[in-house]
């Protein structure tokens, strides 16, 4: 750090300085920026679907069934003459909603459970740890499909199933972090301060695992997005008239030989969307480590 830099930085408040530092570190990672931009584009598309989609999701054009790309239908139409681009934009809603909400749900369950298990140890920890081990023995998608089948087919239920399916992995991460943090000297110093457990967890343990959790979340989102597509494909998620990338893939099956593009476009959307969140997560992992100064 140069001398000039120091004196200039002193006048700014620490949060602003930290934010500036993060922005500078972010700028050094082009892949993370691409991830951020593409992910934001998908999120915006989902939010703004009613305004930016050229047609409504269900609008049929019987003059153009299974049509190729044209100025009227940029990505062509499906077997019912529905505009593929519009359906992909509308479909982003289901994917983003499922991806983000399922991850938030998983976090809401996993973080308190993991922290309590890791910080307090004891028999509760033993039970929770073994239980997550058992749940982790089942593949994520099998758990999600099973739960969705029990709960009944709908986007809400698919989201819940995906959230519960993602929770064990997050519990394990939160528990591991809490386990490591409770041995940190600054946590012991907080005990020496006479701080209550609640304060220690809220002020010292949670903030210090936040960056790990954020990274885990950005990695969990694409998994949930793909999971939503799978559930919808299997008929356990979004129900057919409503557009979803998974539903579009399922519909495209019957026309695979005549119009393979019907499967390619939603496939590319799933691929790009999950890739962008993954890139973003990788970038955040590097950036959010508080100990890397530059």
């Amino acid at each position: 750090m140069s001398f000039v830099d120091t004196s200039a930085a002193l006048t700014v408040n620490p949060r602003a300085r930290r934010r500036r530092l993060l922005r500078r570190r972010f700028a050094r990672r082009p892949l993370a920026i691409i991830g951020l931009v593409v992910a934001l584009a998908f999120i915006l598309a989902a939010i703004l679907a009613p305004w930016i989609a050229p047609y409504s999701a269900g609008a049929t054009d019987f003059n153009a069934l299974l049509a190729h790309s044209s100025s009227k239908h940029l990505l062509g139409t499906d077997e019912l003459g529905r505009d593929v681009l519009s359906r992909i934009i509308w479909g982003a809603r289901a994917s983003i909603e499922a991806g983000v909400l399922a991850t938030l749900l998983a976090m809401a369950v996993a973080v308190p459970v993991g922290i309590v298990a890791g910080y307090y140890r004891g028999w509760a920890d033993a039970v929770i740890a073994r239980l997550t081990d058992v749940l982790l023995a089942f593949p994520f998608l099998i758990v999600a499909v099973g739960l969705a089948a029990i709960l009944g087919p709908s986007l809400t239920n698919a989201t819940i199933a995906l959230g519960i399916g993602a929770a064990p992995a997050l519990i394990r991460v939160a528990r591991g972090e809490a386990l490591a943090l409770r041995e940190e000297d600054y946590v012991r110093a907080a005990v020496a301060n006479g701080a209550s457990d609640a304060r220690i967890l809220a002020r010292h343990v949670l903030p210090n695992m936040l960056s790990t959790l954020i990274v885990q979340a950005t990695v969990a989102i694409p998994t949930a997005i793909i999971g939503e597509a799978v559930l919808s494909f299997l008929g356990l998620g979004v129900q057919p008239p409503t557009p979803s990338w998974g539903v579009m893939l399922a519909d495209a099956q019957s026309y695979l030989s005549q119009a393979p593009r019907l499967a390619v476009y939603p496939g590319v959307a799933i691929f790009l969307c999950s890739l962008s969140f993954n890139l973003l997560g990788d970038g955040l992992r590097d950036i959010l480590d508080p100990r890397t100064t530059r």
């Binding site: 940190e184 600054y186 110093a189 210090n208």
Partner: peptide, 10 residues
């Protein structure tokens, strides 16, 4: 003992 780990980095 360790002035690095005894202060909360956040």
């Amino acid at each position: 003992q360790d002035p690095y780990s005894s202060l909360d980095p956040r």
